[in-house]
Each structure stands twice: as structure tokens, then as C-alpha cells.
Design a protein around this nucleic acid. Structure first.
Length: 948
DNA sequence: AACTTCACG
DNA sequence: GACGTACGTGAAGTTC
């Protein structure tokens, strides 16, 4: 080969920023043990480089390589357009110090590391790619960034390093609908919200590709825009031609950046083990240091003596200082398809021997009450996983054809008979992700799994507030592995199929992987529980709640659909009437349900003043705005009337669409009852959330809405009983903030809001003015939410100065509350989490951020220990409830944050109330002895409306 | 898919 | 000194 870069050479260009970003988000916020320096992103970055170096030795090895970084945030594009990337979020605080370290890391790996002020990494990549191509060589860009796709072709291709898929001209065309050379034209039209490139409003990639393909290129399109048939599209292109041309400049990468090195400087060099290990050792990456040592056949340097720990620092907050184990790569070819009883028995023996198994069920529906079991997957160790298909079918799509079971499957009953003794064996742990789902599916087949572990709940106990706890998130973050998307198997939208139609081979790969991932997550999370002091919450609240909630959900609540149907009819009539009225006042027909159209009518057509536009440019027409307009009878009577009619319409529309209509569709045809689903790990504070349908927001505040609760009934001979905690959050506040006056008031059972008013305004509790009491009540709630003068003013509709005066007076009278708020925020700032009385941790990663996010985080931090403790208490009560009411003919049906709803035999109502009340009032103990009593109010009746 | 609105504690 | 503000949820409908 001749000197220098040329034909036969192969250049790898690594998008450094993408690697860093990827590494940062893939890993929990690790810190260096010795001094707390955040190093999660550096660690991930090094792992990725290590993996790259190992894999790059193969057949298609590069001859030249460089990692390209961005330098600074200001580039020539900002000079073209000052809004470029303007809505980018600021770099996270704990990432910033890691950036220079990634450069050092690259050099330690002996890989060229390049950047250029005023240009983005993408421009340098474009320049190098051009040079390499012109020299006759090949180029592979390691990135999946769509902005680089314009470079593909003529010997240049991309490789997505995470998914390990090549991106050539075909893939680019698939994404953009045009050949790579026209990608910039499409991007110029479609714009990009991430980089804040304006493009042509209303035109996305699809439309852009259509236009470019029709007219050949952007310039021709803009010149001939007048020929476009669609009027809106035509106008957009004519009006925004300049903006589109600017957008094209912004998206076009510069292939002529003034770089001060040549391709020859990028020749591949092997890492020098000593240099590399020295760096890795300094970073305290033990595993990686060892692996490099093994590869190079040298001994790793001794671990550095830990230096004295720096004081404080929020770095190791919130269950984060974890080291990821050396993950075994996934080898799906090891997954087993269980076809017969002998093989299943073998796997179950493995579980018996090990004492655990990870399990996952595949079904035909997300609704556990309607889902049919299709298969079960099992895992014993990483990569040791199997799928047992039971209900895969084919055919049945013609009118009379019944679906046929496909071969190579065990019989359902035979399999369940083998599974049952293991799944119910108290000496074998059953590990699942979101076990409530699998528990319910199997319970419907007569198997009650116990004991169980749930990786979703482990993550919730460890990481509440940091991220979601779905399997895809957890696998991506903690195993650095992206599971096969379910979409790849069943599709999406209209053409979606059910899992029983998935071919067995694909089903094995998918389902066994899920069990494998679950097992790995369990092995990773379980040991961290103790280290993070999360064991008690997990063991006493989260895990035991699974069967309790499963039973509640399976029981369901009886709903009289005919009551709802009648109400829907009445609502429909009223709405039609109001719509006529509204059309008349507005003088034109419009969609009352469209806030946009309504805003234009009110503020543009009818001339109401003071319309405020939100960030989308639409007028705000929320209830508070409309209520203000209804008071303008003198100035703008028509608008006042219109606003009032719309408010009425909205009220009815909400009741109809969200409640009376929707609830009917949720009545299970087999049980005649509504089966909600509670998410245990949904709310960061420890509250439950109810979905499909949400039964925690059934109307109660308005008389009309409350009537919907009449449809929630007890069957013949039974009653609905409701028990709710009185003022539980304020009681918790009184306890944690140690407010003597509040504590005493609760002990004496006086009206707490009246007492607050009395303290603040020096008036006796007896004969308290209801208006003053109302204001005091608003303040009491405000305190729980992290009060602000602005918020209180808006809530009470009083001037802000007056609201601030109330708050000042309140804090003067209850200085302990201000102290509590200050202590709590200080704690959050130091640790990046807050804690409830019971030890539940809620992470507050944004607490030290700058900008408006910090305000939210601060108020959330104040609220979380209070809301969270209340959630702890009712969770504890619920866990104890089934055992306590065993001899009573009663079923716990629903939870609404501070309320439990039961269905009880008429004769047992009193006994149930007494027992459940005792459990609920004593639920904090023995873990916490509150200084204030917990009081539970009870009601009963034929419907929820009567019981509440 | 994002946004707006509104139901609950 | 400006800025944006009550906490926590889920669902339906419109708009892009």
C-alpha cells in the first residue's frame, strides 16, 4: 500500500457526544468512591470504548479511527440563527465535570480525539468523511444521529453502535423517504424541534419527502411552489421560503471545516496497557481495569488508597452509588422452547434446586380480567431461560373457522398441573416484573403464586423519583440492553395481532428474554435494598400489597350500567340544547369542545380583552378564565352569557365522556363489574394510581357529578361501606413539624381550620366566620403543597399582597412549619432525596438544578414526606386488612388515597366498620407512634353515593 | 404525540 | 431583581 490514507483504507468516525450522552443516561449516577466525583458517564463511555476496541479487531477492521467531540456551545449556526438549539436543556450538573474526562479517556485508549471551536462534531465528521471518500477509502460513522445521515453513500455508511445495525442508503431512505443526497432538503422543510430548526410550519418528514420527490429538489420546489394544489401547503411554502432556506443552511453539514490535522494522523494504534490501566485505576473502574489486564496479560495496578472522603456532597444521593456487575452478554440462541412435560419437569427441577425462578406470562390482552394465557417463560440464571407456549393458534380469521392450536405445545392443563406445586411452593421464590399482572393471570387458573419478588417494586423502592420502572427502562438503564420491542412481534395500531398469533420461534426469543432480564434485574437490585435502607418499605408495604391489590382488582365493583346509560341520555340532550344556545350567542357554529376555536370566538370575534395565550399561541380558556368572563355582564354581556353556557356544557361533557359513557364500556361482561387496575409504582410519593378505568377520580365535589356514584352499588343483601381518614396529611404535618398547637387541636378533636383561623386572626373558634375559616383552610392545604403567595392568591382569588400577608402571619404563629419546610429543602439539597416517617425514600434529582425546575422540585420535596407518609399508612392498613377481616363477609374493593371501600353483607356492616377502623387507625404502629390520633370516618349504604 | 382541560385526594 | 409558582395523579378530546 502506498503511503497515507487511500484506497483500501477504512476510517471509523465515532460521534463522541452521542457516546457520552448515551453513557450518561444508560447508567445510574455513579460516583467515585474515594471522593464522590460523578463518573457514571465516564464509566459508561470507557465501557463503550473498550467494547468498541475489542469488536473492531474483526474482519472488517478499521485502519484509521477518531472520536469527534463538540467544542463549546457556540457555532457558526448560532451566528446564522440565534434561536439554533435554543430550547436545548442545559447540561446536567453532574455531567459537566465528566466531559473533559471523556477526552482523557479517549487518549488513554490511544484513539485520536478531535474537536474544533466554532464547529459541531458533525461538521468535522462531514469533512473527514469527504476527505476519506475522495482519497478512495471507506468510512463508517458510529452514530445513529439522523443529522449525519446526509453523509451516507459513496463509500460512507453509518453504524448504530447500540443496536449494532448498519445504516446505508436504504435505511436512510426508509427514514426520510428520499435518497441521502436529498435528506437536507427534507430536513429543511420538516424542521427539527430538538435543534429548534424552524422548517415549514405544518410540514413533517412525510409531506416533505413527498414534495421533494415530486419537484426534485428544494430550490425547484420553492420556485414552483405556486403550482401546489393544496392551498394551505402552497401558502406555507410561499410565506416561509426564507425560513426554509435558512433551515437548509442550518442542517447542512460543513464538509470544509478548517481542521489542522490529516487523515494520516488518525491511524489505528493499539492501546498501551500501562497508560490505559493507569487511567482506569485512577477512575477506580475496578472491573474494567481487570479486564484490560486480562487482555494484555499484565497484572492490574493495586487499587489506590482511598483518600479522605470529601465532606458532604449530594453526589451519592438517592440509591445511586452502585457498581454494575460485569454483565454477561445476552445469548438468545441459548433460550429453550419447552415442548413436552419431560422438558418442563427438568426446568422445574432446576428451580427447586436453585430456590428461585423468574417468571413471565404471555397473554392475549393487557386487561388481566379478559386475557387468555398464551405461554409462560422461565429463567434460572442469566441466559438460562425458556418459553413454554400453551395457547398459540393459527387460522380462525375466516367467518366460521375456529382457530387451531399450533403443534409443538404442551397441553394447558397438563402444564398448569406441573407448574402449580412449584409456583405455590413456599421454599421457591417466584420473581417477576410487575407481578400483580402474572399473579392475576395465574390466579384465574387456580394458582396463587407465593412467595413472590417483583423487580418493578424493587426498582420503585430504590429509585422512586429517578425514572420509571417498566422493564424496557430498567433493562436499558441497568443492563445496557434493549429488549425486543413487542411491536416487532404483534405490530401496532389497526393491524396489531394478539400474542397467540405470534410464531413460536419469535415468541421464544421475546418471552424468554423477558424472564432473563427479570432475573438479571433481580440479581442486581436485591442486594442493594439493604445498602439503600429500602428493605423495610419493600418488605412491609410494596411486596405484600401485590396479592392484596390483585384480589381487589379481581373482585371489582358492581356498577349498574343502566343508571349510567340513563344519565348519558339526559346529558346528551342537555348538551345539544346548550350547543344550540351557544351557536346562537356566538352567531356561528363551532366546535365547543375546541379550546382553540372557543378562544378565537371569545377574544377575537367578540372582543373580550385580556386573553392570554399559552406557549402554543392558543388562548387559554380554562374554567377560571371563563368564570372571569361571566362576570363581565355589563361590559360584554354576550361573551358573559357564552362563557357561562360553555362552562355548563363542559361540565356535562366531562361527566358524559369520562364517566357515564366510558364507565359503561368498562363493565366486564362476565362479572357485570368494573375491574380497575392499580399501579403500585406509578406515583413517586407512594400513592397508588388507578387506571382503566381510573376509579380514584369519580366526581364528588358537585351535586350533579356525585350522582355518578349512585351507579356504584352493592348486590342484593350487601352494602357499600366507605372508611376514610380525617385530615390525615395535616395530622402528619403536625407530627413531623412538631407543632404543639396543631397537635393539641387534633387531640381535642376541634375543627382544625377554624382553629387555624382563630390563631391567625385572634378570633374565637365559636361562631367563626365561614369565609375566614375557608381562607384558613386554603392556607392549611397550601402549606402541605409548599405554599407561595402567588398560588394562595390565585386559589383564594385575592390580591397577591394580601395572600402574602396571610402566609407571613401564619408562619409567625406557626414558626415550626417554616422551620420544617426549610429543614426539608436543606435535607433534599444535601441528599437529593427526602424520606417519610416510615423510611420511604423519594428521590428529588432536580432539587439542585438551576432554573424554574428548582421551584417545582422544592415544593415537591416539601410535599413528598407528607403525602408519602399518608400513603405509607394506608398501604400498611391495606396489607393487614385481609387477615383482619377474615371472619367477616366483606371484600375490600377500592382505595382512593385516604379512603377504603368495601362490599359487606348487610349483617356484618357494623363488625366490618369496627374492625377496619381499628386497623386503619392503628396502621402507623408499631413502626411509628404518632403524637396525634388518626381518626377514621365511616359511612354505609346501597351505593357509593350513600356510603361516602 | 403534545397540549389543554378537568375529575379526584 | 426577575421568573414562574401551590402537591400528586389519569382520561378524553383536539390539533398537528
Amino acid at each position: 500500500m502506498a503511503e497515507g490514507f487511500g484506497k483500501g483504507c477504512h476510517l471509523h468516525l465515532i460521534d463522541g457526544s452521542a457516546f457520552i450522552f448515551r453513557a450518561y443516561h444508560a447508567l445510574p449516577p455513579l460516583t467515585r468512591k474515594s471522593d464522590g466525583l460523578p463518573i457514571g458517564a465516564v464509566s459508561g463511555f470507557c465501557n463503550m470504548l473498550f467494547k468498541y476496541v475489542e469488536e473492531a479487531k474483526g474482519a472488517d477492521a478499521p485502519t484509521h479511527v477518531a472520536v469527534i467531540f463538540d467544542k463549546g456551545s457556540h457555532t457558526f449556526r448560532n451566528d446564522l440563527y440565534d434561536q439554533y438549539k435554543a430550547n436545548r436543556e442545559a447540561m446536567p450538573e453532574d455531567l459537566r465535570p465528566q466531559i473533559p474526562l471523556t477526552r482523557t479517556a479517549t487518549e488513554a485508549f490511544n484513539i485520536a480525539c478531535k474537536e474544533l471551536a466554532g464547529y459541531e462534531a458533525d461538521d468535522i465528521i462531514a469533512t473527514l468523511a469527504r476527505q476519506a471518500r475522495e482519497a478512495g477509502g471507506r468510512v463508517t460513522i458510529l452514530s445513529s444521529d439522523k443529522d449525519l445521515m446526509q453523509l451516507v453513500g459513496g463509500g460512507v455508511e453509518m453504524l448504530d453502535p447500540m443496536k449494532n445495525v448498519q445504516i446505508g442508503p436504504e435505511e436512510v431512505e426508509k427514514k426520510f423517504g428520499v435518497t441521502p443526497d436529498k435528506v437536507i432538503d427534507v430536513q429543511a422543510l420538516a424542521g427539527d424541534s430538538v435543534d429548534n430548526i424552524p422548517g415549514a410550519p405544518g410540514i413533517g418528514i412525510k409531506t416533505a419527502a413527498l414534495l421533494i420527490n415530486e419537484y426534485g429538489d428544494l430550490e425547484t420546489l420553492l420556485e414552483r411552489a405556486g403550482e401546489i394544489k393544496q392551498p394551505k401547503r402552497r401558502q406555507t411554502l410561499i410565506d416561509n421560503a426564507d425560513q426554509i432556506r435558512l433551515s437548509k443552511q442550518l442542517v447542512t453539514l460543513d464538509p470544509e471545516t478548517p481542521i489542522d490535522f490529516t487523515l494520516d494522523d488518525l491511524e489505528v494504534r493499539d492501546p498501551e496497557p500501562e497508560t490505559l490501566m493507569k487511567f482506569l485505576n485512577e477512575m477506580e473502574f475496578r472491573t474494567l481495569t481487570r479486564r484490560v489486564a486480562e487482555k494484555s496479560g499484565t497484572t492490574p495496578p493495586p487499587a489506590l488508597e482511598p483518600v479522605a472522603k470529601a465532606t458532604g456532597g449530594a453526589a451519592e444521593a438517592g440509591g445511586s452509588a452502585v457498581t454494575l456487575p460485569e454483565a454477561a452478554p445476552f445469548t438468545p440462541e441459548n433460550y429453550v422452547h419447552i415442548k413436552d412435560a419431560a422438558t418442563l419437569a427438568k426446568w422445574l427441577d432446576k428451580a427447586r434446586a436453585r430456590g428461585w425462578l423468574a417468571i413471565d406470562t404471555e397473554t392475549t390482552s393487557l386487561d388481566e380480567m379478559q386475557a387468555d394465557l398464551v405461554g409462560v417463560s422461565l429463567a434460572i440464571e442469566p441466559n438460562e431461560a425458556a418459553y413454554l407456549p400453551l395457547g398459540h393458534t393459527e387460522g380462525g380469521d375466516d367467518l366460521f373457522g375456529g382457530a387451531q392450536l399450533v403443534p409443538e405445545q404442551m397441553g394447558l392443563q397438563e402444564a398448569l398441573a406441573l407448574l402449580k406445586p412449584v409456583l405455590e411452593d413456599p421454599s421457591i421464590l417466584k420473581i417477576g416484573q410487575n407481578m400483580k399482572y402474572d399473579f392475576k393471570i395465574l390466579a384465574r387458573h387456580g394458582i396463587r403464586m407465593a412467595p413472590i419478588e417483583d423487580t418493578m417494586l424493587l426498582s420503585y423502592s430504590l429509585h422512586a423519583g429517578l425514572h420509571g420502572h417498566g422493564m424496557d427502562t430498567l433493562s436499558d438503564r441497568y443492563l445496557n440492553h434493549q429488549p425486543i420491542p413487542i411491536k416487532d412481534l404483534i405490530g401496532s395500531g389497526k393491524s396489531q395481532i394478539t400474542f397467540d398469533k405470534v410464531p413460536l420461534e419469535k415468541a421464544v426469543a421475546y418471552a424468554a428474554e423477558d424472564a432473563d432480564i427479570t432475573l438479571r434485574l433481580w440479581q442486581l437490585f436485591k442486594p442493594q435494598l439493604h445498602a439503600q435502607k429500602a428493605t423495610t418499605i419493600y418488605e412491609t408495604e410494596e411486596r405484600p400489597l401485590v396479592p392484596v391489590l390483585a384480589d381487589m382488582e379481581m373482585a371489582g365493583v358492581k356498577v349498574d350500567a343502566s343508571v349510567l346509560a340513563r344519565m348519558s341520555n339526559v346529558f346528551a340532550q342537555k348538551m345539544a340544547q346548550l350547543e344550540d344556545e351557544i351557536t346562537e350567542i356566538a352567531g356561528q357554529k363551532f366546535n365547543v369542545g375546541s379550546p382553540k376555536q372557543l378562544g378565537e370566538i371569545l377574544f377575537d370575534v367578540m372582543g373580550v380583552e385580556g386573553g392570554k395565550k399559552g406557549k402554543t399561541g392558543a388562548y387559554s380558556t380554562g374554567a377560571d378564565v371563563l368564570e372571569d368572563i361571566t362576570t363581565m355582564e355589563d361590559r360584554n354581556p354576550a361573551a358573559a352569557k357564552l362563557a357561562s353556557a360553555v362552562l355548563d356544557w363542559r361540565g356535562i361533557s366531562k361527566l358524559k365522556s369520562t364517566y357515564t359513557d366510558a364507565l359503561q364500556t368498562h363493565v366486564n361482561p362476565e362479572t357485570g363489574r368494573v375491574h380497575t387496575s392499580y399501579s403500585i409504582a406509578g406515583a413517586n410519593t407512594g400513592r397508588l394510581a388507578s387506571t382503566d378505568p381510573n376509579l380514584q377520580n369519580i366526581p364528588v365535589r358537585s351535586d350533579e357529578g356525585r350522582r355518578i356514584r349512585e351507579a356504584f352499588v352493592a348486590p342484593e343483601g350487601r352494602r357499600i361501606v366507605s372508611l376514610d381518614y380525617s385530615q390525615i396529611e395535616l395530622r402528619i404535618l403536625a407530627h413531623v413539624a412538631q407543632i404543639d398547637a396543631l397537635k393539641q387541636a387534633f387531640r381535642e378533636g376541634v375543627d382544625i381550620h377554624a382553629m387555624t383561623a382563630s390563631e391567625m386572626f385572634n378570633t374565637p373558634v365559636e361562631g367563626m366566620d365561614p369565609m375566614i375559616r375557608r381562607q384558613a383552610k386554603a392556607i392549611n392545604f397550601g402549606v402541605i403543597y409548599g405554599i407561595s403567595g402567588f398560588g394562595l392568591a390565585r386559589n383564594l382569588r385575592i390580591p397577591r399582597a394580601e395572600a402574602q400577608g396571610f402566609i407571613d402571619r401564619y408562619f409567625e404563629r406557626f414558626p415550626g412549619i417554616r422551620q420544617y419546610m426549610e429543614d426539608t429543602t436543606a435535607f433534599a439539597k444535601e441528599h437529593a432525596y427526602v424520606e417519610t416517617l416510615f423510611g420511604r425514600r423519594i428521590n428529588t434529582p432536580e432539587i439542585n438544578a438551576k432554573g424554574p425546575g428548582a421551584g417545582f422540585a422544592k415544593r415537591a420535596a416539601i410535599n413528598a414526606p407528607i403525602q408519602g407518609a399518608a400513603a405509607d399508612i394506608i398501604r400498611r392498613a391495606m396489607v393487614r386488612m385481609p387477615e383482619a377481616i377474615k371472619g367477616i363477609d366483606a371484600t375490600m374493593l377500592l382505595q382512593v388515597h385516604d379512603e377504603l371501600i368495601f362490599e359487606v353483607a348487610e349483617a356484618d356492616v357494623d363488625r366490618l366498620i369496627a374492625t377496619a377502623r381499628e386497623i386503619m387507625e392503628g396502621a402507623a404502629e408499631p413502626a411509628v407512634k404518632l403524637d396525634v390520633p388518626l381518626i377514621v370516618d365511616a359511612g354505609q349504604g346501597l351505593s357509593w353515593a350513600e356510603a361516602h
